[in-house]
Design a binder for these strands. Structure first.
Lengths: 232, 232
DNA sequence: CTCCTTTTGTTGCATATGCAACATCATTAT
DNA sequence: ATAATGATGTTGCATATGCAACAAAAGGAG
């Protein structure tokens, strides 16, 4: 499971923005970080576990999920390379994770010890403070994303939630055809709607010529109708 | 409108945790902060405005809201003394506020210039870094609260949303009778449900002996029934 | 290829809730 | 006190969608 982290480059990771590879290597050792692989469907951690790590997605995709007593689940957020997850609990000093993290596909994750990350160390880690500053910016952005998430979920109809989500993703990727990181089941968990009801709405939208889709690829055809949907 | 800030104490504000009053006074001047009063219903800022300030609630209550094209609104969050708002946009360097902030009651707000807050100054502000660290912790906690918010909104029924919210508030206040910061209209915006439908559910819950309420005071009577509701 | 599993789409039915219109009660101003 | 305004509760109706059960399609393993 363990691996020599020095062989990888992490300069493109937001967490290490502005830090050169040599420093990252030092930091990584200083952090006592561990790289692990997770098969699709397995959990990086469960809600209720002791909050000890911040995760970096090296490969694959993880969903931050909340399962409830009645067997329902919501996908609260999704992280893929080069994103991180669990950082808020580190900073807010929460003792137990309130959410679970599950590998959506086979994934490779670096787990960093929370204490090591937050307490600047003495030797060799001159860039540690830089990392902490990066962390702050990441959290602030995630915060804003969560606001958008709430906006999406609170739309009245499935149609509106779906369209809001798709348009939002398209804006972010600056493309009018996007590939979403969810299958239907996951998308319904993300939008917080029933899967079959979602299918029904999707079929209707395609029938009405609003959009076309194939698997997890979506393209908007009629922006006027989209606008109409959102204004309704 | 303007006021000499030195006359007030701010040591109990999370933003100034660990900073003594003298330093706070220096910082406040260094920040070029302004104290303003807002009548109930007026806006501290609108979505789309240039993001220039972080707000501190000195008195009253503000709702962070998102209005959409179809005239619906969601209350994303609520801040009262001694909370702050708008800090994420400061740190994430977002140019326009995506949300509006409205005074829920007559309120007194300190507005701090974003740039002044984030860029450590040279003279006299030795505690500036401390403030920034406080800011980080605040954001992380808000992040976690937003997760809980999503969990609440995504409950299936109005009954479940309501109960989830009330129980959550009661846990936080460690009381079994609470006074919520919303009237019915605001509560419906917060839970993202129809006001009259909320009233209907409330009446039903009272009729069934699950809880009692008067205005914005709520008390749980039957925890078994509560449990049943959430497990259903 | 065939078999099995997973993913996705379809459909009938039940129902929670959005909506609108009105009633009741509380609050504030004159 | 009276009037006006706002907050809250009530109710009938329409409907979006949750749910369940099944069908169809796609993907993987042997």
């Amino acid at each position: 499971m363990k691996k020599n982290l020095k062989t990888n480059t992490y300069t493109n990771y937001p967490l290490f923005k502005g830090v050169n590879q040599n420093s990252i290597n030092v930091i990584m050792n200083c952090f006592k970080s561990v790289e692990k692989e997770y098969k699709k469907g397995t959990y990086i951690w469960h809600a209720g576990d002791e909050a000890s790590y911040v995760g970096i997605v090296v490969k694959g995709q993880v969903n931050i999920v909340k399962d409830d007593i009645s067997g329902d689940r919501v996908i609260i957020n999704t992280a893929y390379n080069p994103m991180i997850f669990g950082e808020s609990y580190a900073i807010a000093k929460i003792s137990e994770y309130p959410v679970s993290v599950q590998a959506a596909v086979d994934s490779k994750i670096i787990l960093i010890d929370i204490d090591k990350l937050m307490i600047p160390c003495s030797v060799g880690c001159s860039f540690h403070n830089k990392v902490i500053k990066n962390l702050v910016e990441i959290i602030a952005k995630k915060n804003i994303k969560l606001n958008g998430r709430i906006e999406c979920i609170t739309k009245k109809t499935i149609k509106q939630k779906l369209v809001f989500y798709l348009i939002d993703e398209m804006k972010m990727n600056e493309k009018d055809e996007i590939q979403i990181p969810y299958n239907r089941n996951e998308l319904s968990d993300y939008l917080n709607v029933n899967r079959s009801a979602l299918s029904r709405v999707l079929s209707k939208l395609e029938e009405d010529g609003v959009l076309i889709f194939n698997k997890n690829k979506f393209r908007i055809l009629d922006y006027n109708k989209i606008k109409e949907i959102m204004e309704n």
